[in-house]
Design a protein around this nucleic acid. Structure first.
Length: 263
DNA sequence: ATGCCGTCCATTGGACGA
């Protein structure tokens, strides 16, 4: 079973790229972030033609997440919005249960777009940390269920210096603040496995290259898109891939897809 | 470098992102 995460930076602007990638990779579940679309405007017809079911949690102009899946979520299992703050208007979280081919146990897939948090010194950074606190509580709740679960998405956190080509450039950035990194470690310390780091200790593995300043041709990247696996999912982890070549396509997103194969 | 690039929304320029 292939579970993917990809910040596509605008689903309407990225539709052809998304279709090409879905056709090439055929993930069972794809978590999309920054769809930048309301639910009604999500360009679903061509995606459905490729055999995908679509669940969205959209928002006008920015943010927005979606779950694409080869089979529909189990009835009543879709949750929109991260629990813990009814006043939070931003669409950054959607999760659902999916049947696993050849298994009696379904898997829960949560798709998240964690707040960026920049610039420091504004209300954006405490919003990020508060969101991470809520995520930790929800992840702990899911962990206690002792069932296969994946929290996949754009975490907007560079976990370690080796996850950036030039870590010194990020010292003043919300993505690499000690508080952001500590909150990410708390998720890991609950008992979740960073899928990529379960498969390699290599530095220089990135998922994002800025559009600016020649970041892509210079390979000035960072690793901020992660799949965190519950023990029940991590036990069946086969491999992790980063579809880096997609960054070289026409009109690319600044992020590339990350895919975990779970047995 | 309060810069660079890109998307969206609104109307040629601002908000937002990382």
């Amino acid at each position: 079973m292939l579970v993917a995460t990809w910040n596509i930076n605008g689903v309407k602007a990225r539709l052809e790229t998304l279709l090409a990638w879905l056709d090439e990779r055929r993930p069972d579940v794809a978590c999309l972030q920054e769809i930048k679309s309301v639910d009604e405007a999500f360009p679903g017809a061509e995606i459905e033609k490729l055999g995908y079911h679509i669940e969205t949690h959209g928002q006008k102009g920015f943010n927005g997440v979606a779950l694409l899946s080869r089979s529909a979520p189990l009835a009543g299992s879709v949750l929109r919005g991260l629990p813990g703050d009814p006043a939070d208007e931003q669409s950054r979280f959607i999760e659902a249960l999916f049947a696993v081919p050849g298994s009696e146990t379904p898997i829960r897939v949560a798709c998240l777009y964690l707040p960026n948090g920049n610039p420091l010194g504004t209300e954006k950074f405490p919003y990020k940390l508060g969101w991470m606190d809520r995520l930790e509580k929800h992840a702990a709740l899911r962990l206690a269920e002792e069932t296969p679960c994946i929290f996949a998405g754009d975490y907007n956190v560079i976990p370690e210096p080796e996850d950036a080509r030039n870590p010194a450039d990020w010292l003043g950035d919300a993505l690499f603040q000690p508080e952001s990194r500590a909150a990410y470690r708390r998720l890991i310390n609950l008992g979740y496995t960073d899928a990529l780091r379960a498969t390699t200790e290599q530095a220089g593995v990135y998922t994002f290259w800025d559009y600016q300043a020649g970041a892509w041709p210079r390979n000035n990247g960072i690793r901020i898109d992660h799949l965190l696996l519950s023990p029940e999912a991590a036990s069946n982890l086969r491999s992790v891939a980063i579809d880096k070549h997609v960054r070289g396509w026409e009109k690319p997103s600044d992020h590339v897809p990350v895919i975990a194969e779970i047995a």
